[in-house]
Design a binder for these strands. Structure first.
Lengths: 162, 162
DNA sequence: TGAAAAAATGTATAATTTTGCAGCCGAATT
DNA sequence: AATTCGGCTGCAAAATTATACATTTTTTCA
């Protein structure tokens, strides 16, 4: 097994590991990481978890467990930079789940429908939640990028370099 | 200063304290609790946090903070359970589809939202159908277990001796 | 290139959190 | 009343997590 050393690869692996199984200590997570060829220490796991905003919460079924957020909104992001009441976007498989202020969901869903992105099959809106269904095989990042063009105000986006 | 000793009063105070200010250790939270007349120790704060499902998460690049979910569902509240309206639960990938009696969907979806399960990204309710989106990688059994805590009849509640 | 700066990591340890255990207290039972 | 039972808590120790510092690795830039 080759020794892997890429940081984002390791953090991606960490994220996946935490999603697949319940752990109650970083040491145990570390064991799995090492079996996958990431030869690091607990200190690094701790630092990775901080960067990924992993949190440890009590879980009635399993004692303690780690939870890795799918939330792409930075914690310190200015809420005003998000239009139309959208509060957070999360991803799971070929779906995106958008939480909004109460009552905003359907209007935002309409905006999403209107961009007619080829990789978006459709949306369903409740009162404060939207589910966006992406075409099969569309990478998370692509879907995220599309949705940002609707939900993030253009002024907050970096100017194109050319 | 009167010494308060009621548990739920203390946990309510803890909740409020955590919502109002950023703390990075239980000791510091404890100081505030003590100033409010709750004469306990850090161990109790730890236990309270466990019960309230408080989680510690990295705040920005540096620093940690506690996060307490905004909705609590007192265990012995629901005088009459909405969950009687749920008829069927089915799973497909990272989704659960719940069929309900006509008109019950949104009420039950709200109950599901209120448990703030970390593995549930969100729900969308129609009139008699709810779609629950789980976090990627969450095993079917875990999602099922979560939903059962809402939808299963309160037979798990303490019974008279039998 | 190579030097300097920045980033990443390990080590050892500090800081924090969790928990086993025993005592306490109140409710229920005898 | 005394006993039992069960939940809550403090104490102290164990377990876990975070970090200061040194070292190594990577990046930058001339």
């Amino acid at each position: 097994m080759p020794v892997k050393k890429n940081i984002s690869e390791r953090q991606a692996a960490l994220r996946k590991i935490l999603q697949q199984k319940v752990f109650d200590s970083q040491e145990k997570v570390l064991e799995v990481l090492r079996k996958q060829g990431f030869n690091v220490t607990q200190a690094t796991v701790s630092r990775d978890m901080r960067q990924l905003k992993v949190s440890k919460v009590s879980d009635s079924q399993y004692g303690y467990r780690y939870v890795v957020s799918n939330n792409i909104l930075p914690e310190d992001e200015n809420p005003k930079s998000w239009t139309d009441g959208a509060r957070e976007i999360m991803f799971s498989g070929n779906l995106a789940v958008i939480k909004t202020l109460p009552g905003y969901a359907s209007s935002i869903a309409t905006l999403i429908d209107n961009i007619k992105a080829p990789e978006i099959l459709g949306t369903v809106a409740g009162d404060d939640t939207i589910i966006v269904v992406a075409q099969q095989g569309v990478p998370f990042e692509v879907l995220q990028g599309r949705l940002k063009t609707v939900i993030a105000p253009p002024s907050s986006r970096k100017k194109a370099k050319g």
